[in-house]
Protein backbone atom coordinates (compact mmCIF):
# COMPACT_ATOMS: atom_id res chain seq x y z
CA UNK A 1 0.00 0.00 0.00
CA UNK A 2 1.07 3.54 -0.70
CA UNK A 3 2.82 5.12 2.30
CA UNK A 4 0.78 8.32 2.24
CA UNK A 5 -2.48 6.42 1.98
CA UNK A 6 -1.47 4.20 4.89
CA UNK A 7 -0.61 7.22 7.00
CA UNK A 8 -3.92 8.79 6.15
CA UNK A 9 -5.80 5.66 7.09
CA UNK A 10 -4.02 5.43 10.41
CA UNK A 11 -4.83 9.03 11.18
CA UNK A 12 -8.48 8.68 10.25
CA UNK A 13 -8.71 5.42 12.16
CA UNK A 14 -7.12 7.06 15.20
CA UNK A 15 -9.58 9.93 15.17
CA UNK A 16 -12.48 7.56 14.58
CA UNK A 17 -11.37 5.32 17.45
CA UNK A 18 -10.95 8.30 19.75
CA UNK A 19 -14.42 9.62 18.93
CA UNK A 20 -15.89 6.16 19.28
CA UNK A 21 -14.36 5.46 22.70
CA UNK A 22 -14.55 8.90 24.27
CA UNK A 23 -17.55 10.55 22.64
CA UNK A 24 -19.91 8.08 21.03
CA UNK A 25 -19.66 5.26 23.60
CA UNK A 26 -20.31 7.42 26.70
CA UNK A 27 -23.17 9.17 24.97
CA UNK A 28 -24.61 5.88 23.83
CA UNK A 29 -24.22 4.63 27.42
CA UNK A 30 -26.02 7.71 28.64
CA UNK A 31 -28.80 7.13 26.14
CA UNK A 32 -29.18 3.51 27.31
CA UNK A 33 -29.13 4.48 30.98
CA UNK A 34 -31.87 7.05 30.36
CA UNK A 35 -34.19 4.17 29.46
CA UNK A 36 -33.30 2.01 32.50
CA UNK A 37 -34.82 1.89 35.98
CA UNK A 38 -33.43 3.57 39.05
CA UNK A 39 -31.77 1.38 41.68
CA UNK A 40 -30.71 2.62 45.13
CA UNK A 41 -27.44 0.61 45.28
CA UNK A 42 -26.35 -0.31 41.74
CA UNK A 43 -27.49 3.06 40.33
CA UNK A 44 -29.42 1.36 37.56
CA UNK A 45 -31.46 -1.76 37.19
CA UNK A 46 -32.35 -3.55 33.99
CA UNK A 47 -35.80 -3.14 32.56
CA UNK A 48 -36.48 -0.73 29.72
CA UNK A 49 -38.81 2.07 30.62
CA UNK A 50 -39.69 5.62 29.66
CA UNK A 51 -40.15 6.38 33.33
CA UNK A 52 -37.18 8.84 33.49
CA UNK A 53 -38.52 10.84 30.55
CA UNK A 54 -41.95 10.72 32.15
CA UNK A 55 -40.54 12.36 35.24
CA UNK A 56 -38.91 15.03 33.03
CA UNK A 57 -42.39 16.02 31.86
CA UNK A 58 -42.68 17.59 35.27
CA UNK A 59 -43.27 21.36 35.14
CA UNK A 60 -40.31 21.79 37.51
CA UNK A 61 -37.96 20.40 34.90
CA UNK A 62 -39.57 22.47 32.16
CA UNK A 63 -38.97 25.53 34.34
CA UNK A 64 -35.33 24.54 34.82
CA UNK A 65 -34.96 23.98 31.08
CA UNK A 66 -36.43 27.33 30.13
CA UNK A 67 -34.57 29.17 32.86
CA UNK A 68 -31.33 27.67 31.52
CA UNK A 69 -32.16 28.62 27.95
CA UNK A 70 -33.12 32.11 29.10
CA UNK A 71 -29.88 32.62 31.03
CA UNK A 72 -27.73 31.15 28.24
CA UNK A 73 -29.47 33.34 25.69
CA UNK A 74 -29.01 36.41 27.87
CA UNK A 75 -25.36 35.52 28.45
CA UNK A 76 -24.96 35.14 24.67
CA UNK A 77 -26.55 38.52 24.12
CA UNK A 78 -24.30 40.15 26.72
CA UNK A 79 -21.26 38.50 25.14
CA UNK A 80 -22.37 39.67 21.70
CA UNK A 81 -22.95 43.25 22.82
CA UNK A 82 -19.64 43.34 24.65
CA UNK A 83 -17.74 41.27 22.10
CA UNK A 84 -18.76 43.06 18.92
CA UNK A 85 -17.21 46.45 19.69
CA UNK A 86 -14.26 44.60 21.18
CA UNK A 87 -13.70 42.52 18.05
CA UNK A 88 -14.32 45.58 15.89
CA UNK A 89 -11.67 47.50 17.77
CA UNK A 90 -9.11 44.73 17.31
CA UNK A 91 -9.94 44.30 13.62
CA UNK A 92 -9.56 48.03 13.02
CA UNK A 93 -6.42 48.42 15.14
CA UNK A 94 -3.15 48.97 13.30
CA UNK A 95 -1.40 45.85 12.04
CA UNK A 96 1.34 46.34 14.60
CA UNK A 97 -1.04 46.10 17.56
CA UNK A 98 -3.43 43.43 16.30
CA UNK A 99 -1.42 40.30 17.23
CA UNK A 100 -0.88 41.62 20.77
CA UNK A 101 -4.54 42.44 21.25
CA UNK A 102 -5.49 38.99 20.02
CA UNK A 103 -2.97 37.50 22.41
CA UNK A 104 -4.71 39.30 25.26
CA UNK A 105 -7.97 37.69 24.23
CA UNK A 106 -6.42 34.23 24.27
CA UNK A 107 -4.27 34.58 27.42
CA UNK A 108 -7.09 33.60 29.84
CA UNK A 109 -7.23 30.18 28.16
CA UNK A 110 -3.86 29.45 29.69
CA UNK A 111 -5.51 29.24 33.10
CA UNK A 112 -8.10 26.64 34.00
CA UNK A 113 -11.53 28.23 33.82
CA UNK A 114 -12.55 26.81 37.21
CA UNK A 115 -9.61 28.59 38.82
CA UNK A 116 -10.53 31.77 36.98
CA UNK A 117 -14.06 31.45 38.35
CA UNK A 118 -12.63 31.36 41.87
CA UNK A 119 -10.73 34.53 40.99
CA UNK A 120 -14.02 36.15 40.02
CA UNK A 121 -15.34 35.21 43.47
CA UNK A 122 -12.45 37.09 45.06
CA UNK A 123 -13.40 40.15 43.06
CA UNK A 124 -17.13 40.04 43.67
CA UNK A 125 -17.38 38.91 47.28
CA UNK A 126 -18.09 41.20 50.22
CA UNK A 127 -14.88 43.07 51.08
CA UNK A 128 -13.51 41.76 47.77
CA UNK A 129 -11.61 43.76 45.19
CA UNK A 130 -14.68 45.40 43.67
CA UNK A 131 -16.28 46.14 47.04
CA UNK A 132 -13.11 47.77 48.36
CA UNK A 133 -12.68 49.78 45.21
CA UNK A 134 -16.23 51.12 45.29
CA UNK A 135 -15.85 51.98 48.96
CA UNK A 136 -12.52 53.69 48.41
CA UNK A 137 -14.06 55.76 45.65
CA UNK A 138 -16.83 56.71 48.00
CA UNK A 139 -19.49 55.24 45.76
CA UNK A 140 -20.81 52.99 48.49
CA UNK A 141 -20.96 53.54 52.20
CA UNK A 142 -20.21 49.99 53.25
CA UNK A 143 -19.03 46.66 51.84
CA UNK A 144 -21.12 45.33 48.98
CA UNK A 145 -21.34 41.83 47.62
CA UNK A 146 -22.45 40.88 44.15
CA UNK A 147 -21.72 37.25 44.86
CA UNK A 148 -24.61 34.77 44.61
CA UNK A 149 -26.69 36.98 42.37
CA UNK A 150 -27.81 36.66 38.75
CA UNK A 151 -25.47 39.57 37.98
CA UNK A 152 -22.55 37.57 39.29
CA UNK A 153 -23.57 34.68 37.11
CA UNK A 154 -23.70 36.90 34.04
CA UNK A 155 -20.32 38.33 34.86
CA UNK A 156 -18.98 34.79 35.16
CA UNK A 157 -20.53 33.59 31.90
CA UNK A 158 -19.47 36.68 29.99
CA UNK A 159 -15.94 36.59 31.36
CA UNK A 160 -15.45 32.90 30.62
CA UNK A 161 -17.13 32.77 27.23
CA UNK A 162 -16.28 36.19 25.75
CA UNK A 163 -13.20 34.94 23.84
CA UNK A 164 -15.39 32.39 22.03
CA UNK A 165 -17.49 35.29 20.83
CA UNK A 166 -14.63 37.67 20.04
CA UNK A 167 -12.52 35.35 17.89
CA UNK A 168 -15.11 34.43 15.21
CA UNK A 169 -16.35 38.02 15.20
CA UNK A 170 -12.82 39.29 14.71
CA UNK A 171 -12.33 36.92 11.79
CA UNK A 172 -15.56 38.12 10.16
CA UNK A 173 -14.94 41.82 10.71
CA UNK A 174 -11.34 41.69 9.57
CA UNK A 175 -12.45 40.08 6.31
CA UNK A 176 -14.90 42.89 5.63
CA UNK A 177 -13.83 45.05 2.68
CA UNK A 178 -13.61 48.63 3.93
CA UNK A 179 -14.40 49.89 0.45
CA UNK A 180 -17.92 48.62 1.00
CA UNK A 181 -18.35 51.02 3.91
CA UNK A 182 -16.98 53.85 1.80
CA UNK A 183 -19.43 52.87 -0.92
CA UNK A 184 -22.33 52.90 1.55
CA UNK A 185 -21.39 56.35 2.79
CA UNK A 186 -20.86 57.56 -0.76
CA UNK A 187 -24.43 56.47 -1.50
CA UNK A 188 -25.78 58.52 1.38
CA UNK A 189 -25.69 56.18 4.37
CA UNK A 190 -24.48 57.72 7.63
CA UNK A 191 -22.13 55.64 9.79
CA UNK A 192 -25.01 54.04 11.67
CA UNK A 193 -26.94 53.03 8.57
CA UNK A 194 -23.76 51.83 6.87
CA UNK A 195 -23.20 49.60 9.91
CA UNK A 196 -26.76 48.33 9.90
CA UNK A 197 -26.99 47.70 6.16
CA UNK A 198 -23.48 46.54 5.34
CA UNK A 199 -21.30 45.67 8.32
CA UNK A 200 -23.93 43.77 10.27
CA UNK A 201 -25.26 41.53 7.47
CA UNK A 202 -21.77 40.80 6.17
CA UNK A 203 -20.47 39.82 9.62
CA UNK A 204 -23.58 37.71 10.36
CA UNK A 205 -21.68 34.41 9.88
CA UNK A 206 -19.29 35.53 12.64
CA UNK A 207 -22.20 36.57 14.85
CA UNK A 208 -23.90 33.20 14.41
CA UNK A 209 -20.72 31.21 14.96
CA UNK A 210 -19.80 33.23 18.05
CA UNK A 211 -23.33 32.93 19.45
CA UNK A 212 -23.30 29.15 19.02
CA UNK A 213 -19.91 28.91 20.69
CA UNK A 214 -21.21 30.89 23.67
CA UNK A 215 -24.77 29.63 23.91
CA UNK A 216 -24.03 25.90 23.84
CA UNK A 217 -21.43 25.84 26.66
CA UNK A 218 -23.53 28.32 28.67
CA UNK A 219 -26.36 25.78 28.71
CA UNK A 220 -24.22 23.02 30.17
CA UNK A 221 -21.71 24.88 32.31
CA UNK A 222 -22.67 23.93 35.88
CA UNK A 223 -19.88 25.36 38.01
CA UNK A 224 -20.54 29.01 37.23
CA UNK A 225 -24.16 29.05 38.45
CA UNK A 226 -23.04 27.00 41.41
CA UNK A 227 -20.00 29.04 42.43
CA UNK A 228 -21.16 32.52 41.47
CA UNK A 229 -24.93 32.09 41.58
CA UNK A 230 -24.68 30.21 44.86
CA UNK A 231 -26.62 27.31 43.39
CA UNK A 232 -29.79 29.23 44.16
CA UNK A 233 -31.17 29.03 40.69
CA UNK A 234 -31.25 25.50 39.42
CA UNK A 235 -29.99 25.23 35.87
CA UNK A 236 -29.74 22.30 33.49
CA UNK A 237 -26.07 21.74 34.17
CA UNK A 238 -26.55 21.71 37.93
CA UNK A 239 -29.67 19.61 37.63
CA UNK A 240 -27.81 16.90 35.72
CA UNK A 241 -24.86 17.05 38.06
CA UNK A 242 -27.15 16.80 41.11
CA UNK A 243 -29.07 13.84 39.74
CA UNK A 244 -25.85 12.00 38.98
CA UNK A 245 -23.80 12.83 42.10
CA UNK A 246 -26.26 13.76 44.86
CA UNK A 247 -29.60 12.16 44.14
CA UNK A 248 -27.95 9.13 42.57
CA UNK A 249 -30.77 9.10 40.07
CA UNK A 250 -28.81 8.13 36.99
CA UNK A 251 -31.73 7.48 34.65
CA UNK A 252 -33.16 10.94 35.33
CA UNK A 253 -29.77 12.65 34.92
CA UNK A 254 -29.15 10.68 31.74
CA UNK A 255 -32.56 11.57 30.37
CA UNK A 256 -32.01 15.28 31.09
CA UNK A 257 -28.59 15.00 29.50
CA UNK A 258 -30.08 13.35 26.42
CA UNK A 259 -32.74 16.02 26.10
CA UNK A 260 -30.03 18.71 26.27
CA UNK A 261 -27.88 16.93 23.69
CA UNK A 262 -30.79 16.56 21.31
CA UNK A 263 -31.73 20.22 21.77
CA UNK A 264 -28.17 21.30 20.96
CA UNK A 265 -28.00 18.95 17.98
CA UNK A 266 -31.25 20.39 16.62
CA UNK A 267 -29.81 23.89 16.95
CA UNK A 268 -26.62 22.95 15.14
CA UNK A 269 -28.63 21.35 12.35
CA UNK A 270 -30.80 24.46 12.04
CA UNK A 271 -27.72 26.62 11.86
CA UNK A 272 -26.20 24.41 9.16
CA UNK A 273 -29.43 24.53 7.21
CA UNK A 274 -29.46 28.32 7.43
CA UNK A 275 -25.94 28.60 6.03
CA UNK A 276 -26.69 26.03 3.33
CA UNK A 277 -29.85 27.93 2.43
CA UNK A 278 -27.85 31.11 1.99
CA UNK A 279 -25.54 29.32 -0.41
CA UNK A 280 -28.49 27.71 -2.16
CA UNK A 281 -29.99 31.14 -2.80
CA UNK A 282 -26.91 32.13 -4.74
CA UNK A 283 -27.05 28.97 -6.81
CA UNK A 284 -30.70 29.65 -7.54
CA UNK A 285 -29.67 33.00 -8.94
CA UNK A 286 -28.00 31.23 -11.82
CA UNK A 287 -31.02 29.09 -12.53
CA UNK A 288 -33.49 31.96 -12.46
CA UNK A 289 -31.22 34.17 -14.55
CA UNK A 290 -33.54 36.25 -16.69
CA UNK A 291 -33.32 36.13 -20.46
CA UNK A 292 -31.28 39.10 -21.66
Amino acid sequence: MHDGALFRRICILGVAAWLLVFALAPNAGLLVVSFLTRHPEDFVAPGLTLEAYGRLMDPTFAAIFWESVRLAALATLVCLLAGYPFAYGIARASRRWRPWLLLLVVVPFWTNSLIRTYAVILILKSRGVLSNLLEALGLTSGPVSLLYTDTAMFIGFTYTLLPFMVLPLFAAIEKLDRNLLDAARDLGAGSLRAFWNVTLPLTMPGILAGSMLVFLPALGMFYIPELLGGGKSMLLGNFIKNQMLLARDWPLGAAASTVLTVALAVMIVLWRLATLRARQDEDDDILTEGAP
Binding site: N179, L180, D182, R185, D186, G188, A189, G190, L202
Partner: peptide, 22 residues
Amino acid sequence: VPPERRQVNTVFQNYALFPHMT
Protein backbone atom coordinates in the same frame (compact mmCIF):
# COMPACT_ATOMS: atom_id res chain seq x y z
CA VAL B 1 -19.47 68.10 4.42
CA PRO B 2 -19.25 64.32 4.92
CA PRO B 3 -19.49 61.95 1.92
CA GLU B 4 -23.06 60.89 2.70
CA ARG B 5 -24.27 64.47 2.39
CA ARG B 6 -22.56 65.33 -0.91
CA GLN B 7 -24.40 65.13 -4.18
CA VAL B 8 -21.46 63.27 -5.65
CA ASN B 9 -21.15 59.55 -6.32
CA THR B 10 -18.18 57.31 -6.91
CA VAL B 11 -17.45 54.26 -9.03
CA PHE B 12 -14.82 52.52 -6.94
CA GLN B 13 -11.73 50.86 -8.31
CA ASN B 14 -12.86 47.35 -7.40
CA TYR B 15 -16.52 48.31 -7.77
CA ALA B 16 -17.25 47.72 -4.05
CA LEU B 17 -20.62 46.15 -4.84
CA PHE B 18 -22.44 44.83 -1.78
CA PRO B 19 -22.02 41.05 -2.05
CA HIS B 20 -25.07 40.28 0.09
CA MET B 21 -27.48 42.24 -2.05
CA THR B 22 -28.89 41.58 -5.49
